[in-house]
């Protein structure tokens, strides 16, 4: 197995409240892993662990082990900046910076010390192409990103993540603020991206998980109930709770 992440016995607390309970999960390289489950079950909490975004929440305490390429990312000496470069993130509502389309994508590489104009041009173009946005914006690169539609903004955020040349892209409900057409575009994009990236996506749409993911993990009240091939989960889940959730019996 070619795993990018190995998570073992992960417990997470917000002060006294335990939000994740004894999670064991492996994330496979170049696969799309979907996280599903009812609101408040811990999906966002879990996905934030993978690039240590939870460090920003003071009450948050983690026990157990998360390995990225066999290295414990919660080790005191671990390079968190490097981790966040390798493991990019796209959020629920598109959050472009209030600057031009070009600068949005160039921002990360510039911060990383890349000042060469030609190189930046190439990175911006390639990233926008990979995010399936280039054709729509190539003639207005210097316009403000705020003038883009919601779906375009979200693809811009994906381009921004891609510009950092990550290995993994985490997406927390990336289409929940988008209309159906924009949603389909992002779904298509995710399908194309998995050739070169490993994707972990939180989604509230069961159909979306079924359509785009290779593996599906079902969370319930902080526990990982079941993780398996998506094909298996949506035809013959092993756990009754999974069955009840995906068939809409509760939730």
């Amino acid at each position: 197995m070619n795993n990018v992440f190995n998570i073992k016995n992960l417990d997470l607390f917000y002060d006294d409240f335990q939000a994740l309970k004894n999670i064991d999960l492996d994330v496979e390289k170049n696969k799309v892993t979907a996280l599903i489950g009812p609101s408040g079950c811990g999906k966002s909490t879990f996905i934030r662990c993978l690039n240590r975004m939870n460090d920003l929440i003071p009450s948050c305490k983690i026990e157990g082990n998360i390995q990225y390429h066999k290295e414990d990312i919660y080790d005191d000496n671990y390079d968190v900046i490097g981790l966040r470069t390798d493991v990019g993130m796209v959020f629920q509502s598109p959050n472009p910076f209030p600057m031009s389309i070009y600068d949005n994508v160039a921002y990360g590489p510039r911060c990383a010390g890349n000042k060469n104009k030609d190189k930046l041009d190439k990175i911006v173009e390639n990233s926008l192409k990979k995010a399936a946005l280039y054709d729509e914006v190539k003639d207005r690169m210097n316009d403000s990103a705020m003038g883009l539609s919601g779906g375009q903004q979200q693809r811009l955020c994906i381009a921004r993540a891609i510009a950092m040349e990550p290995e993994v892209i985490l997406m927390d409900e990336p289409t929940s603020a988008l209309d159906p057409i924009a949603t389909l575009k992002i779904e298509e994009l995710i399908n194309d991206l998995k050739e070169n990236y490993t994707i972990v996506i939180v989604t509230h749409s069961m159909q979306q998980a079924a359509r785009i993911s290779d593996k599906t993990a079902f969370f319930l009240m902080g526990e990982l109930i079941e993780v398996d091939e998506t094909d298996k989960i949506f035809t013959q889940p092993s756990n009754q709770k999974t069955e009840d959730y995906i068939t809409g019996r509760f939730g």
Binding site: M206, Q207, A210, F234, T235, P237, E243, I246, T247
Partner: peptide
């Protein structure tokens, strides 16, 4: 209804 699992079966 996009049935899945036992509903689909």
């Amino acid at each position: 209804q996009c049935p899945v699992a036992s509903d689909l079966r």
